[in-house]
């Protein structure tokens, strides 16, 4: 049991940190620009594919630095020549723009790299078990992922709280109009933030690609959950996103480890479980099965009882 707890915690934290890498960019974009960026996970996928391609040509370590920059540039270009045009027509067109963009990116990736998973390997340097506990090994690359995400979190925190640009972004998060009135070039800040956020997603892709599978559907799987993180954590709150990421990572991982159903609970307190009827399945469902649904339930509940999210200060 102890080993399950330890590994579930490790895996949960790792998944949470991966979510945070993605969500941190999205929360900046969402809170500053109000854009519900449905293509954010697509940038994550682009990162994985760029990382794969560059490590084929050169080396993983080059890819680690170059691929996120490339993705960031793509993101900035999308903002400059796409979103900016749409911005003046409101948030729904922006959202639909990113909707279409996700389609386009997915199809392009399929055309260029094929529809099958690509053989994106963990670099030789990190291809060994980091430690062994109760006979289960934990790969070094996963530790490396954890390290990178923690480092990024710290850097982000420092930049946002200590640097001038960080202050402008912080201000723009909460009072976008005021910042514009103070004479800052808000469109330029938007472009930079969008590019930076996409770059972060790209970085997540580069390091997640070898550990998970790099394939065209990888964006789909993560898409909606990112919104849960951002909204649950609270708009405009990086630390909220951080807590939400970890929470969701841990909850999802631990839910998998639990095999009880509502029916079991009823039986254990001495009640008969209903077996007939159309909705009888409800009693058979185990916690493990509903694990992936839990985040959405959390989202709905927190929005009903605390519309600003966990740490947020505003509703939109």
């Amino acid at each position: 049991m102890l080993e399950l707890v330890i590994f579930s915690t490790l895996n949960g934290v790792l998944y949470g940190m991966l979510l945070f890498l993605l969500a941190s960019g999205l929360t900046l974009i969402f809170s500053m620009m109000g854009v519900l960026n449905f293509a954010h996970a697509s940038f994550y996928m682009l990162g994985a594919y760029f990382g794969f391609q560059i490590s084929q040509w050169l080396d993983f370590w080059v890819a680690l630095f170059v691929a996120p920059v490339c993705v960031g540039l793509v993101g900035a270009a999308v903002e400059r020549w796409g979103l900016r045009t749409v911005h003046k027509w409101g948030h729904v067109p922006e959202l639909l723009f990113t909707f279409g963009l996700a389609f386009v990116i997915e199809e392009m990736v399929q055309m260029i790299w094929g529809k099958l998973p690509v053989d994106y390997r963990v670099p030789k340097l990190l291809d060994f078990p980091a430690f062994e506990l109760f006979g289960t090994t934990y790969p070094a690359f996963r530790m490396f992922m954890l390290l990178i995400s923690v480092a990024i979190f710290l850097v982000l925190l420092l930049v946002l709280t200590r640097s001038r640009i960080g202050l402008i972004i912080q201000a723009a998060l909460t009072h976008p109009n005021m910042v514009a009135m103070l004479g800052h070039n808000v469109p330029k800040v938007f472009m930079m933030v969008f590019g930076f956020g996409s770059g972060l997603a790209g970085l997540a892709g580069v390091i997640a690609g070898p550990a998970l599978v790099t394939q065209p559907s990888m964006a789909h799987v993560l898409g909606p959950i990112l919104f849960v993180v951002v909204v649950f954590g609270g708009l405009g709150s990086l630390s909220g996103a951080f807590i939400a990421s970890l929470m969701i990572g841990l909850i999802q991982t631990f839910a998998i480890a639990i095999n009880y159903s509502i029916g079991d609970l009823l039986t254990s307190v001495g009640m008969a479980r209903p077996v007939q009827g159309m909705l009888s399945d409800l009693w058979q469902v185990t916690v493990a099965q509903v694990g992936p649904v839990v985040p959405y339930l959390m989202l709905v509940l927190i929005l009903i009882f605390r519309p600003t999210g966990l740490m947020g200060t505003r509703e939109s």
Binding site: E3, L4, S8, N11, Q252, A257
Partner: peptide, 19 residues
């Protein structure tokens, strides 16, 4: 039973199998 095509990381399941 796990959700169809929604899992990004099977490590938690592997931990369970291991246990």
């Amino acid at each position: 039973l796990h959700p169809l095509a929604k899992i990004t990381d099977f490590a938690p399941y592997i931990a369970k199998i291991k246990a």
